[in-house]
Write a protein that binds this DNA or RNA. Structure first.
Length: 826
RNA sequence: GCCGAAGUGGCGGAAUUGGCAGACGCACUGGACUCAAAAUCCAGCGGUGUAACAACCGUGUGGGUUCGAAUCCCACCUUCGGCACCA
């Protein structure tokens, strides 16, 4: 065994050896129970950052641990390879996006390998490969056939810097999620997926995801935004038109004093054209429409009267119709009944325009009408000013009024969702082409399945306007209609890259399948993902889309599961000096540098030791050194005692062990128990590693305190083997080296996880705490099997305790076996 | 504004079911080894206090429940994350 811990040689040697022996390869079937461990695949930006290292180190511990626990572990890796940065690089450096991407993939793959991650590289996928996106297109066609995919003109989010549209989910506080530019609204014809058909199921099934962080479930719940209420029809006076509104408070319908339409509402034109109000209204609409979404949501509530009136169906009252900037066309019906007494927004609006405010809900035992309202009352209460419904509690009134409206066909109960359909077309080049052809005769025609893939042309010219080069590419655009054979044009939009990443976890189960997107048997064997690991920034986008896809696939009989990810771990960020690492802040620590200086094992150990996975992690160069020091300490320990233990037998007659030998064995087994719990049940790798450190310290103490002639080589060997086995998932290279040094030829990563001996954990005596009135006064050693009564008796009999309680009256004594005795005195 | 999470030594963090606060590591201090340094090893390391003990204080703040609270309850403060005219 080498004197020095030479991480460079060791890591290189074992990475090669593992590669050669293919030890991480997983065949499709085996007798062992399956375990699918998945980490979110990266965008191939060119270089790994610390966030990746953290993500993949966590996943690797899980995969290695489960393998040692006897599972058949699927642990694949791939590339989310389509996306805008490739195009930007093309424009900036004149390289082709494809070349740029493949080069980055090669680079990052090397970096991943240097970390010693246990991936089955035979399952690697890249979403930009035609063998992959062929099936992305196939999925698009499936959705199209099933009526889950459609094209429509809508007000959409446009990012001027990325020169493309964005999905609702990709707009963060009115800005582009990627580049932070202000998002504009444009009227464009775009492709959508009908994710809203799944709103209720996506919401309901969150209940089954007990293995997900509560936080993520709540975020999705809010995003889906279900609200229960009623739809009510208001007839427009003097015309046949009707305005429908959605309300969650039909009980307040007697409090309606006006009606507000969204500026984009189609009726606005109908009711104002040719009237005296037309000019004012259209000026107002124009003004509001020109505002960005952000400006609009922060602006003061404003409105204008249309001159028209409508009739409240419940009491026949005539109320004015206004147009207001605070009403959104996209939500509900784009019209709101104004109930200023019981809705804060309506209240502010009514105050500004002197519209009547009529309370109809009154908290029991008060008189709402006698005092002037200063804000809307949104709480519980009983109905007043509401005709025959007076005196009814509001909850019952919601029911009764909805029923009444339903009887007369003027409304009905209704559920509304905040979730919008998923806008999936992008005016970009580097993405999966949408397999649609436009024919003058036949209209919109899907590309037949046997013509897939629609290949993204590589011979393209990039100009600097940001316009997609597909648009002006005649070889791509010009085609023939699959139906009639006439000249036709291809769709030049490509798909949102979130589509690519919404099904990759299925492709891993049969990455080379040519008959379909995946092999159903394989998919059903491996799915769902037992443990998914990634950043919380995907809590809505990627995770919601993937859930939608899986449900759709399930409905099509393509896969058995209804949810893709059984357990989800959202790792925290990697911080330096309290802030997220970023180029602009100049606080980036490169993984390459750390691996070069201390080795992958040290880097991994630090990142897993510094904080539990879910929390943010503060980078510390000093603490990294500390982890390196620990591995050196382990190395030296083995080196110093290897000769002593190399030919040692296994521990026999364990029950006959006494003293320090028994103690070392007890610590070994206690450590196994602790770390197994930490890794398996809690993912608390930091405390697990600290337990291994304590174990190492204990072996050192044993070595130093017990003369060599008296040491028990079998107990020592057991301790050393357990240590290295437990450390193996965290630091795979150095542990492999030490394992081989112990005389083994098989890889440590194919060994079973150590098992603790319940009998070895038992202690004969334990230290208990003696408290007086809850304050620790004394510690004493008592037999471990003492009952509560034994403990009380023993403790109260001690001279020291008698002295402490002298002159005081003992009111009560509480004893917890093995832990403490508390004496309450007066 | 609404929803959620967190707040513990100089620092990262631990305390798993209400039972010894500060495990493990970093930093620091003293010592050993060395011509010297690095590395390594040993010891110390929340605060007040003491010659040393003792004792007292201490888990964001204030209250409460309990024999006993970092842990449970109530109110508040701060930081971070998500949503934000959703009718």
């Amino acid at each position: 065994m080498q004197e020095r811990y030479d991480f460079k040689n060791i890591e290189q040697k074992w990475q090669q050896e593992w590669d050669q022996k293919n030890i991480y390869y997983r065949p499709d079937y085996s007798d062992r129970p399956k375990y699918y461990c998945l980490e979110m695949f990266p965008y191939p930006s060119g270089k790994l950052h610390m966030g990746h290292v953290r993500n993949y180190s966590i996943g690797d511990v899980v995969a290695r641990f489960k393998t040692m626990k006897g599972y058949d572990v699927l642990h694949p890796m791939g590339w989310d390879a389509f996306g805008l940065p490739a195009e930007n690089a093309a424009m900036k450096h004149g390289v082709h996006p494809a070349g740029w991407t493949w080069e980055n993939i090669e680079n990052m793959k090397q970096q991943l390998k240097q970390l010693g991650l246990s991936y089955d590289w035979q399952r690697e996928v890249a979403t930009c490969h035609p063998d992959y996106y062929k099936w992305t297109q196939w999925i698009f066609l499936k959705l199209y056939q099933q009526g889950k995919c459609y094209k429509k003109t809508a007000s959409v989010n446009w990012c001027p810097s990325c020169t493309t549209v964005l999905a609702n989910e990709q707009v963060v506080e009115g800005a582009c999620e990627r580049c932070d530019s202000k998002v504009e609204q444009r009227q464009l014809e775009q492709w959508f997926f009908r994710i809203t058909d799944y709103s209720q199921r996506l919401l309901d099934d969150l209940q089954n995801l007990s293995g997900w962080p509560e936080k993520v479930r709540i975020m999705q719940e809010n995003w889906i935004g279900r609200s229960e209420g009623a739809e009510v029809k208001f007839k427009v006076s003097g015309s046949g038109e009707e305005i429908e509104v959605f309300t969650t408070r039909p009980d307040t319908i007697y409090g309606v004093t006006y009606m507000v339409l969204a500026p984009e509402h189609p009726l606005v034109n109908t009711i104002t054209t040719g009237t005296d109000y037309e000019e004012d209204v259209s000026a107002f609409v124009k003004k509001v429409r020109n505002m960005s979404e952000l400006a609009r949501t922060t602006a003061e509530k404003e409105g204008v009267f249309t001159g028209a009136h409508c009739i409240n169906p419940i009491n026949g009252e005539r109320i004015p119709i206004l147009v207001g900037n605070y009403v959104l066309l996209e939500y509900g019906t784009g019209a709101v009944m104004g109930v200023p007494a019981h809705d804060q927004r309506d209240f502010e609006f009514a105050k500004k325009y002197n519209l009547p405010i009529r309370p109809v809900i009154q908290p029991e035992g008060t008189d709402m009408q006698s005092k002037e309202l200063t804000e809307a009352y949104t709480g519980e209460g009983v109905l007043v000013n509401s005709g025959t419904f007076n005196g009814l509690p509001y909850k019952e009134a919601i029911r009764a009024i909805t029923d009444k409206l339903e009887e007369s066909n003027q409304g009905s109960g209704r559920i509304n969702f905040r979730l919008r359909d998923w806008l999936i077309s992008r005016q970009r080049y580097w993405g999966t082409p949408i397999p649609i052809i436009y024919c003058k005769k036949c209209g919109t025609v899907p590309v037949p399945e046997e013509q897939l893939p629609v290949v993204l042309p590589t011979e393209v010219e990039f100009d600097f306007t940001g316009k997609s080069p597909l648009v002006d590419n005649p070889e791509f655009v010009n085609t023939t209609c699959p139906k009639c054979g006439d000249e036709a044009k291809r769709e030049t939009d490509t798909m949102d890259t979130f589509i690519d990443s919404s099904w990759y976890y299925l492709r891993y189960t049969s990455p080379k399948e040519t008959e379909g997107p995946w092999n159903k048997n394989n998919a059903d064997r491996w799915m769902g993902v037992n443990q998914y690991i990634g950043g919380v920034e995907h809590a809505i986008l990627h995770l919601l889309y993937s859930r939608f896809f899986t449900k759709f696939f399930h409905d099509q009989g393509l896969v058995k599961v209804q949810e893709p990810f059984e357990n989800l771990l959202t790792q925290g960020m990697v911080l330096k000096d309290g802030a997220k690492m970023s180029k602009s802040k100049g606080n980036v620590v490169s993984p390459e540098e750390i691996v070069g200086k201390y080795g992958a094992d040290t880097a991994r150990l630090f990142i897993l030791f510094a904080a539990p996975p879910e929390r943010d992690l503060e980078w510390s160069d000093r603490a990294v050194e500390g982890c390196n020091r620990f591995l050196n300490r382990v190395w030296r320990l083995y080196q110093s005692v290897l000769d002593e233990v190399k030919d040692a037998p296994t521990v026999k007659d364990a029950n006959k062990l006494v003293g320090v030998h028994q103690e070392l064995r007890r610590i070994t087994h206690q450590t196994i128990k602790k770390i197994t719990d930490d890794v398996e049940k809690r993912f608390n790798f930091n405390t697990g590693i600290s337990a291994i450190m304590e174990q190492v310290n204990a072996i050192y103490t044993y070595r130093d305190k017990v003369p060599q002639s008296e040491r028990n080589p079998a107990v020592m060997r057991e301790a050393l083997e357990a240590t290295v086995l437990m450390l193996a998932p965290f630091a795979p290279h150095v542990t492999e080296e030490l394992w081989q040094a112990m005389g083994y030829n098989d890889s440590i990563h194919q060994q079973p996880w150590p098992v603790y001996d319940e009998k070895a954990l038992v202690e004969e005596e334990v230290t208990i705490v003696v408290q007086i009135n809850g304050k620790v006064r004394e510690r004493m050693l008592v037999p471990a099997d003492y009952s509560a009564d034994d403990m009380k008796k023993y403790v109260l009999d001690q001279p020291k305790v008698k002295q402490l309680t002298e002159g005081k009256q003992i009111v009560k004594t509480i004893a917890v076996p093995g832990k403490l005795v508390n004496i309450v005195v007066k």
